[in-house]
């Protein structure tokens, strides 16, 4: 009867996996309910707030630089495919960095681990920005009266890949930042400022002079953004952009993040030392 054991353990693994999905989606739903309860416009506000931010950036970019980038893609779609994945990436990463402190109350339920709450928050962010991306794709498709995405499957996977890089970077920074808070601060500033200008959001990679291009191409988000645009129109030129480099970053960042998380999870639960005593070994 030795065949029973593998089947039983496989069943157990599947039920654990389903439980994991259930917990992560419950965290995402709770986060959505909380944001809706705190905002003025309820659930709609949760989607409208980032949409307003992206529309402002779109309007500013069009006003300042005009409709210069419309050769291969509709300008609005071209810009949306830069802003939405980037803001999604930054949001996922930044929320992961500060997520354990924010979701502290949830760990009252011991079945819930910090990774679950981080995944739940990231899932909600990916869903919100994904909905916006869909709205832009459909809006532009209606405007042009043709479906503007040549390879929708690739678009979805690339979008999820950018989200995974954000999660991996956030998870790694969370652990390292717990030991060295300055690291978390530096990475947060870096995500919002430096990456905004080096992720091919405002300029296509082909417009960057050859001598400067390698300084942009270290950034995996630039690869992801240009590949996203290419998935809408395969003729879109993206010199130096590599899918292998991008997916290497996805696997590497998630793998490294999960590896250090698995080895340091208990650190996140460490008690704060009580005041007036030098260390935890003081005579009780």
């Amino acid at each position: 009867m030795s065949w029973i054991m593998p089947r039983r353990s496989l069943g157990h693994a599947i039920s654990q996996l389903l439980l994991q999905f259930r917990i992560v989606s419950a965290v995402a739903r709770r986060e959505l309910q909380l944001r809706a309860a705190k905002g003025l416009f309820g659930v709609a506000g949760v989607f409208l707030e980032p949409l307003a931010l992206i529309c402002t950036f779109l309007a500013l970019r069009i006003l300042i630089r005009g409709a210069g980038e419309g050769t291969y893609l509709n300008l609005v779609l071209w810009l949306a495919l830069g802003f939405i994945p980037f803001f999604m990436f930054a949001d996922v990463a930044i929320k992961a960095i500060g997520g354990v402190q924010k979701g502290g109350d949830l760990y009252f339920y011991r079945r819930l681990r910090p990774l679950d709450s981080l995944m739940g928050t990231s899932l909600l962010t990916v869903q919100i920005f994904g909905t916006m991306m869909l709205a832009f794709v459909l809006g532009v498709s209606f405007w042009e009266w043709e479906f503007v995405v040549e390879n929708p499957g690739r678009l979805v996977f690339l979008y999820l890949g950018i989200g995974l890089i954000g999660f991996g970077v956030g998870l790694t920074t969370l652990i390292i930042g717990h030991l060295l808070p300055i690291v978390a601060w530096v990475i947060k500033s870096f995500l919002r400022r430096i990456l905004l200008w080096t992720s091919c959001i405002f300029f296509p990679i082909r417009q960057i002079p050859d001598e400067f291009r390698p300084f942009i191409l270290w950034n995996p988000i630039a690869h992801g953004v240009e590949l996203l645009r290419q998935s809408c129109n395969p003729a879109y030129p993206a010199p130096g952009v590599s899918a292998v480099y991008f997916w290497g970053w996805v696997v590497g960042s998630i793998g490294f993040g999960l590896f250090i998380y698995a080895n340091s999870e208990e650190l996140l639960f460490a008690n704060e030392p009580l005041p007036g005593l030098d260390d935890g070994d003081a005579d009780l």
Binding site: R22, A26, R29, R30, Q33, A37, R111, L112
Partner: peptide, 20 residues
């Protein structure tokens, strides 16, 4: 301690039920 005052009784209970 996991209950949130801004969420309904249903939402708080539902979250616990999803987990347990």
């Amino acid at each position: 301690q996991a209950f949130h005052g801004m969420l309904s009784g249903y939402a708080n209970a539902r979250f616990a039920a999803e987990v347990y």
